Computed example of a mutant assay.
Amino acid sequence: MSLTIVSLLPALQNTNGDAQNAQVLAMRAAWAGLDAEVIAVDDADRLPDRVDAVVLGSGSDASLEESRSRLLALHDELRRWGTEGVPILAVGTGWELLSWGVETGDGRSIEGLGILPGRAVPRTARVTGDLVVRSSAFGTLVGFENHARDYRGAEGSPLGRVLAGVGNGRDSGQEGVVMGSVYGTHLHGPVLAKNPAFADHLIGVMAERAGLGYTPGGRAAEVDAYASAARDAQSRAAGVEASAR
């Protein structure tokens, strides 16, 4: 059986390379001896019959309304996948579009798809820089945040606690949102390349739903050592002591 990973709207939602999270999932699955493929879906007509995971990256504010229009055609599928436990990873504006809605700095209000709780609201200034997060499920997560909005209304279900950076903002001390197997985050990187424990969790869910087993392959251990060193270096650069991680 081949696992199918859908990369949603990569032509519009890939300004930070976040669409490559789909390739990370496929490669790690392949290292474990599982057959996996990535299918780019820019409109509903290209949707495959089987979907085992979904990746939605981040785009610019200029593409928000077009991206929302295309995602709206997939609203029923996205809601069904979320309900059925299909892993969905949404980053940056991709996450915001799956929320209750987005308020932009120029006064626009864009209704979200309501797949995830919370709403994106303007900040007084854009935040860019290292983001280090402590997750009870995945340990230390690192990435780069670059957003002009805070996220409110997700306090009960964050991805983790901010150790360095801003995350969801509004002095929440939290980053991201989780609902079942649907994840929203500000972590760019791509996040799954820098944080293989997160990637392995998603692959494990994919495999289990497909009636397959998943154990990371030998190649993964070698790559993960590089990721761990990079994660430690980024954490130190952000001023996070080892004891806090």
Results as ranks from 00 to 15, higher is better:
residue 107 G to H: 11
residue 155 E to A: 15
residue 19 A to C: 12
residue 191 V to F: 05
residue 60 S to P: 06
residue 182 V to W: 04
residue 74 L to M: 15
residue 47 L to P: 07
residue 172 S to K: 08
residue 84 E to V: 11
residue 36 A to N: 06
residue 195 N to F: 05
residue 130 D to T: 13
residue 136 S to M: 12
residue 11 A to L: 11
residue 56 L to P: 07
residue 212 L to K: 02
residue 180 G to M: 10
residue 224 D to I: 05
residue 196 P to M: 10
residue 14 N to H: 09
residue 203 I to F: 07
residue 121 V to Y: 09
residue 52 D to Y: 04
residue 49 D to T: 14
residue 239 G to T: 13
residue 63 S to G: 14
residue 124 T to P: 00
residue 245 R to F: 12
residue 186 H to K: 07
residue 231 R to N: 11
residue 197 A to Y: 00
residue 17 G to Q: 00
residue 40 A to C: 11
residue 71 L to R: 03
residue 231 R to A: 11
residue 70 R to K: 11
residue 143 G to E: 05
residue 8 L to V: 13
residue 41 V to P: 04
residue 240 V to G: 09
residue 85 G to S: 03
residue 109 S to W: 00
residue 155 E to N: 15
residue 69 S to T: 09
residue 189 G to A: 11
residue 74 L to H: 08
residue 73 A to H: 11
residue 244 A to Y: 00
residue 128 T to D: 09
residue 157 S to P: 10
residue 217 G to L: 12
residue 100 W to V: 07
residue 120 A to K: 00
residue 108 R to M: 11
residue 127 V to M: 13
residue 201 H to M: 06
residue 166 V to L: 11
residue 20 Q to N: 04
residue 7 S to K: 08
residue 63 S to Y: 08
residue 213 G to W: 12
residue 189 G to C: 03
residue 203 I to A: 04
residue 5 I to V: 15
residue 3 L to S: 08
residue 105 G to N: 09
residue 65 E to H: 08
residue 111 E to N: 00
residue 47 L to K: 08
residue 84 E to L: 08
residue 130 D to I: 07
residue 22 A to V: 07
residue 174 Q to T: 05
residue 78 L to I: 10
residue 30 A to V: 12
residue 167 G to Y: 04
residue 162 V to S: 06
residue 223 V to A: 15
residue 94 G to D: 09
residue 244 A to G: 02
residue 19 A to L: 07
residue 162 V to W: 02
residue 61 D to P: 06
residue 194 K to D: 13
residue 103 E to N: 00
residue 138 F to T: 10
residue 150 D to K: 07
residue 131 L to A: 04
residue 58 S to P: 06
residue 127 V to P: 04
residue 244 A to V: 03
residue 89 L to Q: 02
residue 211 G to R: 03
residue 14 N to C: 12
residue 204 G to H: 08
residue 202 L to C: 08
residue 233 A to H: 09
residue 34 L to C: 10
residue 216 P to M: 09
residue 55 V to S: 02
residue 88 I to C: 12
residue 172 S to R: 07
residue 118 G to W: 02
residue 201 H to I: 10
residue 243 S to K: 11
residue 132 V to N: 04
residue 237 A to P: 09
residue 133 V to N: 03
residue 17 G to V: 04
residue 72 L to P: 03
